[in-house]
Structure formats: C-alpha cells, structure tokens
C-alpha cells in the first residue's frame, strides 16, 4: 500500500495543484481485492474525524467509500490495482477511485442496489469509463463528495 501525503511534498515533485495549505491530498494504491476495502474505509473515516465531520457524516463516508470500492473490485480485471485519492477540503472530502476492467459491455454499476445506497450516503456521486482498446484495458472511475455536516432530514 502506498501512502502519499501532499502536506509534505517530495523534492522535485513539480507544481502541486493542491498546494493550498488548507487542502490535504492522500492517495492509496492497493490490490483491487475485497481484503483491501476495510483498510481504505478506515482511512476515509479517520480523515473525516480529523476534519471535524459530525458523527453521521463520518459513518456515511465510511459506508460510501466501502460501497464505492466494493463496486470497483467487483468489476476489476484480474490482478488490477485500485487507486483511491482523497482530497480533504475545509468542510468537504472528495474521493476518486478507479481501476482497470476487462469488459466494458456494461461497466458502470449505476443501476445497482450498491449505487442507490451510494447516492443516499454521499452528497455527490459520479462515474465515468474509458472503453478498452486492443492491448489496453478499460478504466472505470467513480467519484463522490461528502460534506462535513449532514443536512437535516426533511
């Protein structure tokens, strides 16, 4: 597992688009396997707790990240890598995760139970895909954003 913390930039790292000190960027690179998911969702919850998210928002983000990763792992190509990037802004955490897929016949799990759950848990969700080409796998990317305060239920 690789841990990149842009708060302590590497020398010669080039211009960091998130050089704003109020923004923390963290990237996890794991095997696209279900056994990686508990670690990733725990990182998400930890970031939210440190960013002063309320308890419901911390739980929602933990569940949303679990769900997002599970969707990608389910469709990932054999031996694929799961890339998961967290951007912690004031009052908001954005998560982008992606992995390689073999078959893009129906790659985006946007009609599934898991997707509906994700929509309930996150404030914004999105999914994009790049079709496979000969000699190159396809790529699926799912993003979400979660605000620090849970909007009161109507």
């Amino acid at each position: 597992m690789t841990y990149v913390d842009s708060g302590t930039p590497m020398p010669n790292h080039g211009a960091d688009p998130n050089s704003d000190e109020s923004v923390l960027s963290l990237e996890l690179r794991t095997t696209a396997s279900t056994v990686s998911i508990p670690t990733i969702r725990t990182v998400a919850a930890d970031l939210a707790a440190r960013a002063d998210f309320d308890l419901d928002s911390i739980d929602d983000l933990r569940m949303a990240v679990d769900d997002l990763c599970a969707m990608l792992v389910r469709i990932a190509a054999a031996n694929a890598t799961l890339y998961c990037t967290f951007t912690v802004r004031p009052e908001r955490i954005e998560v982008a995760a992606e992995t390689d897929v073999d078959d893009l016949a129906d790659p985006l799990p946007t009609g599934s139970f898991a997707w509906r759950v994700l929509q309930c848990l996150a404030d914004e969700v999105g999914a994009t895909s790049v079709p496979a080409e000969p000699g190159r796998p396809g790529r699926v990317r799912i993003t979400l954003a979660k605000d620090a305060l849970t909007a009161p239920q109507p």
Binding site: R41, R62, M63, D66, D67, A70, F113, V117, L118
Partner: peptide
Amino acid sequence: EFLGSAGLSALF
C-alpha cells in the same frame, strides 16, 4: 460495528 451495502442487501 459496520454495516455496508452488501450487509444491507443481505438483510433485505
């Protein structure tokens, strides 16, 4: 201690 969408689905 944790209930994810797969767990919700199993209960459902």
